[in-house]
């Protein structure tokens, strides 16, 4: 396993996708702080630096999907997995070492973003206003969800074995998870009543606002289902963490842990049985 990790990190250092990811994290952090600073100057906005720290989490799934499918996809297209097996590495170790490398890289990308935001954002926008313990908890949840994302996309790469197909499916899935999360949020945030205007006097044109029950307001059962789906979905978790709207934050890492165990477990079983060409 150590040999596989050594070789993997050596390749990472020479890999273009990794350096693009690093530049993207730094560039995005700088861009966000620049835009925030502009807003302060133009409109006198008040900006909480911690909000910027959390915002990247909503799109990190797409970034992990792109990085994992391109970095690990090469393992199949360039014959590296064949090579690793034929020189006596166990399939379990190959799978886990790839998962560890993509997870550490994804976490590194987020940490780098946080460092840039903190070192540029705090001098510009002021200190963090949220209690530090709360911020650490939120960022901790983000890290666990990043591991869950890595386990999903590593699973796809190791099972599909075609770099192009994996990249397409991974990116589509990352967007799909985001849209699914937004749909769930849409349902859950539907108001119980909606107001409609009706004209009470045609001659005078008097208008009366009438409160009516919203037909799209979900039932309690439907709410529970949508809430659970939102909590399980890594993109849903990220939206809740970034929006600080998770009523029960502690449940989210449990769902993430479940995703990690299920995807890695099933991935290992399938990869061990996989007939390689």
């Amino acid at each position: 396993m150590i040999k596989l990790l050594n070789a993997g990190f050596t390749r990472l250092r020479k890999n273009k996708v990794f350096w693009l990811l690093t530049l993207f994290s730094i560039g995005l952090a700088l861009f966000m702080t620049y835009m925030g600073y502009n807003n302060i100057k133009r409109y006198g906005d008040t900006i909480e630096v911690e909000q910027y720290m959390l915002n990247y989490s909503t799109m990190v799934g797409v970034v992990i999907a792109i990085f994992t499918s391109l970095f690990l996809g090469i393992e199949y297209s360039d014959g590296a997995i064949r090579n690793k097996i034929s020189i006596g590495h166990k399939r379990t170790n190959i799978y886990l070492s790839n998962l560890i490398i993509t997870t550490i890289t994804s976490l590194f990308s987020y940490i780098l973003f946080l460092i840039v935001i903190a070192s540029v954002g705090i001098p510009l926008f002021g200190m963090i206003t949220m209690p530090i313990s709360k911020l650490i908890m939120l960022i901790g949840c983000i890290f666990i969800t990043i591991i869950a994302y890595s386990s999903i996309f590593t699973f796809l790469v190791m099972i599909i074995s075609n770099k192009t197909i994996t990249a397409i499916i991974s990116i589509m899935l990352s967007f799909g998870l985001m849209f699914a999360a937004l749909s769930c949020l849409n349902v859950l945030q539907a108001p119980r009543f909606i107001e409609s205007a009706s004209i009470t006097n045609g001659e005078t044109g008097d208008i009366e606002m009438v409160k009516e029950p919203n037909p799209k307001y979900p039932s309690e059962t439907k709410k529970k289902i949508y809430k659970t789906l939102l909590d399980i979905n890594p993109a849903g978790q990220m939206f809740q963490i970034a929006g600080r709207t998770a009523p029960n934050l502690k449940i989210l890492p449990i769902y993430s842990f479940g995703i990690i165990v299920v995807f890695t477990g099933v991935g290992l079983i399938l990869f061990k049985k996989k007939e390689l060409k």
Binding site: K3, A7, T10, R11, K14, D78, G79, K84, S86, G88
Partner: peptide
């Protein structure tokens, strides 16, 4: 065992030396 199965296992983005460094670490 050392093996080449169908096509050689080479990282195209790396030099010959880097490919060998990678393999040295793997073995």
């Amino acid at each position: 065992i050392g093996a080449i199965i169908e096509t050689p296992s080479i990282y195209g983005e790396m030099t010959a030396r880097d490919n060998l460094i990678e393999q040295y670490q793997l073995v």
